[in-house]
Design a protein around this nucleic acid. Structure first.
Length: 119
DNA sequence: CGTATGACTTTTA
DNA sequence: GTAAAAGCCATAC
């Protein structure tokens, strides 16, 4: 998907939209795919500004394979519910089962999508 | 233009 | 395995 002249968050949205259902990625990977591994915080920051469902923000978790939120917040519950609805399995520790592999799959899709829409 | 902030990451203990 | 501290950098004010 071609990004015309994005600000940073527009790039984030484009990248996250390219994440396939049933996979997950991290803030750092999204940032890295956009060309800057140091902007992980801003990926989350950009997603925080989202108000609609046009972006699958729930497929983005932190580098530990866990939900970033405290766990009792409405968004955390919603995120987990949506992921489970896509086939993601959580371990008893609250981590995503097979996180490493899912992350790689999503990263590959991200890079492929972004190579079609260079910064 | 300078300061504050944050849905993160990595290193160290 | 978890916990705490430092580092980064785009928005907001």
């Amino acid at each position: 998907m071609r990004v015309v002249r994005p600000g940073f968050h527009a790039s984030v949205y484009a990248a996250v939209r390219s994440v396939p259902a049933g996979t997950v990625t991290t803030y750092g990977d999204v940032g890295a795919a956009l060309g800057s591994p140091r902007v992980a915080r801003h990926v989350g920051w950009a997603l925080a500004a989202l108000t609609d469902d046009s972006v699958p923000w729930h497929r983005v978790v932190n580098a530990s394979g866990r939900i970033s939120f405290k766990g009792d917040t409405p968004r955390a519950v919603l995120q987990r519910a949506r992921l489970e609805a896509e086939g993601i399995v959580f371990t008893s520790s609250g981590r995503i089962d097979g996180f490493s592999a899912l992350r790689l799959t999503a990263r590959d899709a991200l890079l492929d999508a972004i190579s079609d829409a260079p910064a």
